[in-house]
């Protein structure tokens, strides 16, 4: 499980970086062409959609790294078993929310898969929408691995974190 999660994170992070680099390059193309008086109309759309992919992939990785901003007030006050139970509860909350996001995200993908991009009508909106269930799905996996760690420590009775 641990190795799988590590690999998944690496793939997702790489994907995010690639999309970040892509939209950076596309914007540079946009500026250059505009000042050369050439009209390129697809740059805004391609840059924006790559940006969305980059953000969602990054956000999922940040779930695994537990970097999303959290009030740790209660976390700092509690200790031992109570803290573990709270952590397990919080993992479950994230899992349930992401399952909902995954399912409703799939509904969106299904409903709007065949819509076209405006400037590049040969491309489908589905390629953009699918970033949501992919993000939610990976967030579920990351949270499950956190959950398993917390359950394990609860069983062993050791105090972690």
């Amino acid at each position: 499980m641990n190795r799988f999660i590590k690999m998944l994170e690496k793939i997702q992070l790489t994907l995010g970086i690639l999309f970040l680099s892509l939209f950076f390059i596309v914007i540079v193309i946009q500026i250059t062409t505009r000042h050369l008086g050439i009209s390129v109309i697809w740059t805004t759309e391609l840059a924006t959609y790559s940006f969305i992919w980059a953000v969602f992939m990054g956000a999922a990785v940040m779930v695994n790294r537990r970097e999303h901003f959290t009030f740790d007030y209660l976390q700092r006050k509690l200790k031992g078993k109570t803290l573990l139970i709270l952590n397990i509860f919080n993992d479950l909350v994230l899992i349930v929310f992401n399952i909902a996001l995954f399912i409703y995200g799939l509904e969106v993908v299904e409903g709007f898969w065949s819509y076209n991009w405006v400037a590049l009508p040969q491309l489908k909106m589905g390629y953009v929408w699918i970033s949501i269930p992919i993000m939610a799905g990976t967030m579920i996996l990351y949270s499950i691995s956190h959950l398993m760690k917390h359950v394990k420590s609860l069983k062993v009775g050791e105090v972690s974190e």
């Binding site: 969106v108 709007f112 065949s114 819509y115 076209n116 991009w117 405006v118 009508p121 909106m125």
Partner: peptide, 20 residues
């Protein structure tokens, strides 16, 4: 309009082509 979040909307032809 498609998902039900709105019931009556106003759209231009350009955006209708996006729906295929």
């Amino acid at each position: 309009l498609k998902t039900g979040g709105a019931d009556v909307v106003l759209v231009s032809p350009g955006f209708m082509t996006q729906t295929g």
